[in-house]
Simulated assay, not measured.
Amino acid sequence: PAADTADADTPETPRAGVALVGGGPGDPELITVRGRRLLARADVVVTDRLVPRELLDELPPHVEVVDAAKIPYGRAAAQEVINRTLIEHARAGRFVVRLKGGDPYVFGRGFEELLACTGADVPVTVVPGITSAFSAPALADVPVTHRGVTHEVVVVSGHVPPGDERSLVDWDALGRLRGTVVLMMGVERIGRFADALIAAGRPGDTPVAVVQDGTVPAQKVVRSTLEKIADEAAAAGVRPPAVTVIGPVAGLAPAG
């Protein structure tokens, strides 16, 4: 069956099933109203490490919480275990919330989980979340678009470096763009990404902003340029999770 687009708590929707819920970028108040409502109805919550802990602390004592980050397998095998966990609980008559940081479909493997569930005839409700790709920069006074400055935004995964045979990113094309590149999961190799963009034509003085722990009190912002960001991020002790914004918008700042 296709994903359910109706509210999961309407009389027509079965109690058992799976809801793929985006937990937002970190601040527990940035989950959607619908996401919080479904979370309150959960029998089982399968969660990731980037989910706001406060959301889990609000759960009633009877709710079973499965920490997907602690599944002791490789990346691909762990995903199979997660899929099986969702399906088995739903088939046992439970309402399962798969709570993921940010938005489930923005580098969150959410659609893989939907395909697994629908392939097993398990009803699924999808609840989009606020992605850190845009919200973390926004709360650091970095707009990913601005009138007269950029007409494009490209969100890029940095889980593999430029030149890796697994990479699906055309770094030469990104280097020719003038707009905004939002780099996710790119902290550890930020120097390699910067070098690839410079080699492809981006000026070395292109503004860059790195936002660590966006939307929460521990948020840290490092502003630099493509040619300097690797050294300056390292000097500042930047660590994941962080979002990197590359382009003229990273050089904008409010007055005062």
Results as ranks from 00 to 15, higher is better:
residue 220 K to W: 00
residue 157 S to F: 00
residue 16 A to W: 07
residue 186 G to L: 01
residue 110 G to F: 00
residue 29 E to C: 08
residue 229 I to E: 11
residue 65 V to H: 14
residue 184 M to P: 00
residue 32 T to L: 12
residue 250 A to G: 10
residue 231 D to R: 14
residue 62 H to N: 13
residue 38 L to Q: 11
residue 153 V to W: 02
residue 17 G to E: 09
residue 1 P to G: 14
residue 171 W to M: 03
residue 228 K to W: 11
residue 252 L to Q: 05
residue 187 V to Q: 02
residue 154 V to G: 00
residue 107 F to W: 04
residue 99 L to N: 02
residue 48 D to A: 09
residue 220 K to V: 13
residue 245 V to C: 06
residue 145 T to V: 10
residue 231 D to F: 00
residue 125 T to C: 13
residue 190 I to K: 04
residue 246 I to G: 02
residue 15 R to I: 02
residue 83 N to I: 05
residue 126 V to I: 14
residue 30 L to N: 09
residue 6 A to C: 10
residue 147 R to I: 04
residue 71 I to V: 15
residue 147 R to D: 02
residue 109 R to G: 05
residue 245 V to D: 01
residue 50 L to G: 12
residue 190 I to A: 03
residue 111 F to R: 08
residue 1 P to A: 14
residue 185 M to P: 00
residue 167 S to Q: 08
residue 152 E to V: 06
residue 237 G to L: 10
residue 237 G to Y: 06
residue 167 S to Y: 02
residue 251 G to M: 08
residue 124 V to L: 09
residue 71 I to W: 02
residue 189 R to D: 13
residue 96 V to M: 03
residue 229 I to V: 15
residue 208 V to E: 07
residue 91 R to F: 06
residue 210 V to K: 08
residue 209 A to S: 11
residue 70 K to Q: 15
residue 60 P to I: 13
residue 125 T to K: 12
residue 210 V to T: 15
residue 149 V to G: 14
residue 116 A to H: 05
residue 109 R to H: 10
residue 202 R to D: 05
residue 238 V to M: 14
residue 175 G to W: 04
residue 55 L to N: 09
residue 118 T to R: 14
residue 207 P to D: 08
residue 104 P to A: 09
residue 155 V to G: 00
residue 193 F to V: 07
residue 156 V to N: 05
residue 176 R to Y: 01
residue 220 K to C: 08
residue 79 Q to E: 10
residue 243 V to N: 00
residue 159 H to Q: 07
residue 243 V to I: 14
residue 67 D to H: 15
residue 183 L to A: 02
residue 75 R to I: 12
residue 243 V to H: 00
residue 236 A to T: 08
residue 32 T to V: 12
residue 97 V to H: 02
residue 65 V to R: 13
residue 103 D to M: 09
residue 183 L to I: 03
residue 163 G to P: 06
residue 188 E to Q: 14
residue 49 R to Q: 15
residue 151 H to Q: 15
residue 184 M to H: 11
residue 117 C to H: 03
residue 66 V to M: 13
residue 86 L to Q: 04
residue 217 P to M: 06
residue 186 G to F: 02
residue 86 L to T: 07
residue 155 V to C: 02
residue 60 P to Q: 13
residue 31 I to A: 09
residue 217 P to G: 03
residue 22 G to Y: 02
residue 224 S to Q: 13
residue 177 L to G: 05
residue 123 P to I: 05
residue 8 A to L: 11
residue 178 R to E: 14
residue 23 G to K: 02
residue 227 E to L: 06
residue 63 V to Q: 14
residue 33 V to R: 11
residue 242 A to F: 09
residue 117 C to K: 00
residue 105 Y to A: 04
residue 53 R to C: 11
residue 73 Y to G: 03
residue 118 T to S: 10
residue 5 T to V: 13
residue 195 D to K: 13
residue 32 T to Y: 10
residue 18 V to Q: 10
residue 150 T to M: 00
residue 160 V to I: 08
residue 119 G to I: 12
residue 223 R to M: 06
residue 182 V to R: 07
residue 113 E to P: 07
